[in-house]
């Protein structure tokens, strides 16, 4: 607690396995938004063994449905992660290494993150305007018919995170 760790995407296995629940991280690189419907569709693609519209190997998924004023990017905070618990394993199986969201998750998620050596990050919930400052650019990627639930690629710099569940399955919310 207190010290800030710099992390870059695509994620290096060695870097991520050093992270511990409760540590604060500043993220740099590309991340991909996906919330309820996009997670469901990605799962359907993976289960049907169809090729994905985006390569997620060693990437980070951000549970977020951002705002847009015309083409200008807007408020972009995290949504409740537990709704995506059941869609986690297929994504881990194609190499996704990190997930950013808000709130606590099921014990199954802890198990899966340990098994696939992935990390669940928290970011400042309900602070979409604050987080907007750390997004440098964005690009539309896939499932654009879903509106704000589509997959967007965000280029972030110093995006503030807290490790929620680490690769050992340790959970910051275990006490709750």
């Amino acid at each position: 607690m207190g010290k800030l760790i710099k992390l870059k995407t695509p994620i290096e296995e060695e870097e991520i396995s050093k992270l511990r629940a409760g540590e604060e991280v500043l993220l740099e690189g590309l991340i991909f938004t996906a919330r309820d419907q996009a997670n469901k569709r990605l799962n359907e693609f993976i289960i049907a063994k169809k090729s994905l519209p985006v390569n997620l190997y060693r990437q980070v998924i951000y549970y977020c449905g951002p705002n847009f004023k015309g083409d200008k990017f807007g408020s972009c905070g995290p949504t409740t992660s537990s709704r995506m618990d059941d869609y986690l394993e297929p994504l881990l199986s194609v190499g996704v290494k990190g997930f950013i969201g808000k709130g606590n998750r099921s014990s199954l998620v802890r198990e899966l993150l340990r098994k696939y050596r992935g990390v669940y990050f928290l970011t400042y919930a309900g602070c979409g305007a604050y987080l907007w400052q750390f997004v440098k650019s964005y690009r539309k990627v896939a499932f654009l018919d879903l509106g704000s639930e589509a997959i967007f690629q965000l280029e972030v710099c110093n995006f503030p995170l807290i490790v929620g569940i680490d690769t050992k399955g340790e959970d910051i919310y275990k006490r709750i």
């Binding site: 977020c64 449905g65 951002p66 705002n67 004023k69 807007g74 408020s75 972009c76 905070g77 949504t79 400042y124 309900g126 602070c127 979409g128 305007a129 604050y130 907007w132 400052q133 704000s148 503030p160």
Partner: peptide
């Protein structure tokens, strides 16, 4: 503190306090 900063940032840039409007 971040919640307070968020309010200031939303006001100054006329963007939504939270993406869930």
């Amino acid at each position: 503190k971040v919640i307070l900063d968020n309010a200031l940032c939303a006001y100054k840039n006329r963007i939504a306090l939270c993406q869930d409007t």
